[in-house]
Computed example of a mutant assay.
Amino acid sequence: MAEDRTLAARLPGPLGELARRGHGGAALILVRERGGLKLYIPKRLLPSSSLVTLIGEKAAAVLIDICGNSHIDVPSRGCLNDTLKAAVLRTDGSTREISQATGATERYVRMVRNGGAPQPWHRPRRAKPKDERQIDLENWLATKPKP
């Protein structure tokens, strides 16, 4: 069951929910066999369905319960890589505890938990040195006699 929990943290959407409900093996089969493709989930469970032959009747019934009568995008195998982001998402605790457990910085842990990206830091532009040979336009217009 703990294996299904870590798998559920790595798999997005309906396949993650399928793993949370105890059918992690079926979710892995879908990723391995149909990864990167769109898959139609029928409205009713039909024994002759290709979904039933692929993952089994019980897992297909759970998947139909989750998202029946719709298309899902099956994630590719890249989502199964044990990345730092997945480790941060599946670890419980405070920001500091997660940072120490995963080796990520506290800033990265906060960023992943908030679901956003850090604001890029730009170095402020330096003012260009004033060229003394140039005339200041405002002063020139103010001193120019008006006809």
Score class of each variant (00 low, 15 high):
residue 30 L to I: 09
residue 105 T to A: 05
residue 57 E to Q: 12
residue 107 R to E: 11
residue 139 N to G: 08
residue 11 L to I: 02
residue 51 L to P: 05
residue 70 S to C: 08
residue 68 G to Q: 12
residue 64 I to Q: 02
residue 21 R to E: 11
residue 5 R to Y: 03
residue 141 L to D: 05
residue 112 V to K: 01
residue 20 R to K: 14
residue 109 V to A: 01
residue 44 R to S: 09
residue 39 L to N: 01
residue 7 L to D: 00
residue 32 R to V: 03
residue 127 A to Q: 06
residue 112 V to A: 03
residue 91 T to P: 03
residue 120 P to M: 08
residue 125 R to G: 07
residue 38 K to T: 13
residue 137 L to F: 12
residue 55 I to A: 06
residue 68 G to E: 09
residue 109 V to R: 00
residue 28 L to I: 05
residue 124 P to K: 08
residue 26 A to C: 05
residue 140 W to A: 15
residue 140 W to V: 05
residue 133 R to P: 01
residue 114 N to T: 10
residue 139 N to H: 10
residue 126 R to K: 12
residue 69 N to P: 01
residue 97 E to P: 01
residue 70 S to E: 13
residue 68 G to N: 10
residue 52 V to W: 12
residue 52 V to G: 05
residue 99 S to I: 11
residue 4 D to V: 00
residue 108 Y to F: 15
residue 103 G to A: 07
residue 72 I to P: 01
residue 117 A to Y: 05
residue 70 S to A: 15
residue 91 T to N: 04
residue 17 E to T: 14
residue 49 S to K: 03
residue 33 E to M: 13
residue 46 L to H: 12
residue 99 S to W: 07
residue 135 I to C: 04
residue 43 K to C: 03
residue 92 D to T: 13
residue 125 R to S: 10
residue 75 P to F: 01
residue 66 I to K: 08
residue 126 R to G: 07
residue 62 V to S: 13
residue 86 A to F: 06
residue 21 R to W: 02
residue 109 V to L: 02
residue 126 R to F: 03
residue 50 S to P: 06
residue 92 D to V: 11
residue 22 G to C: 03
residue 142 A to Y: 06
residue 110 R to A: 07
residue 74 V to T: 07
residue 76 S to G: 15
residue 134 Q to W: 06
residue 139 N to T: 11
residue 145 P to M: 03
residue 74 V to Q: 06
residue 101 A to D: 06
residue 146 K to N: 10
residue 58 K to N: 14
residue 95 T to P: 00
residue 66 I to V: 09
residue 1 M to P: 08
residue 86 A to K: 05
residue 122 H to Q: 08
residue 13 G to T: 09
residue 52 V to Y: 05
residue 84 L to E: 15
residue 30 L to P: 02
residue 51 L to V: 08
residue 45 L to R: 04
residue 80 L to R: 02
residue 136 D to V: 11
residue 26 A to S: 15
residue 103 G to R: 10
residue 49 S to N: 14
residue 88 V to M: 11
residue 123 R to H: 07
residue 134 Q to G: 03
residue 19 A to E: 01
residue 58 K to Q: 15
residue 7 L to H: 01
residue 130 K to T: 09
residue 129 P to F: 02
residue 98 I to T: 13
residue 145 P to Q: 09
residue 111 M to I: 14
residue 9 A to K: 02
residue 106 E to H: 04
residue 111 M to W: 04
residue 58 K to G: 04
residue 113 R to F: 08
residue 98 I to L: 13
residue 140 W to H: 12
residue 101 A to N: 07
residue 62 V to E: 15
residue 79 C to Y: 14
residue 3 E to K: 02
residue 143 T to M: 10
residue 123 R to T: 09
residue 75 P to S: 06
residue 39 L to R: 03
residue 12 P to V: 13
residue 114 N to K: 11
residue 145 P to D: 13
residue 68 G to S: 12
residue 144 K to Y: 12
residue 108 Y to C: 04
residue 54 L to K: 04
residue 111 M to P: 01
residue 133 R to W: 04
residue 82 D to R: 13
residue 63 L to T: 00
residue 102 T to D: 11
residue 32 R to N: 09
residue 16 G to K: 00
residue 46 L to V: 07
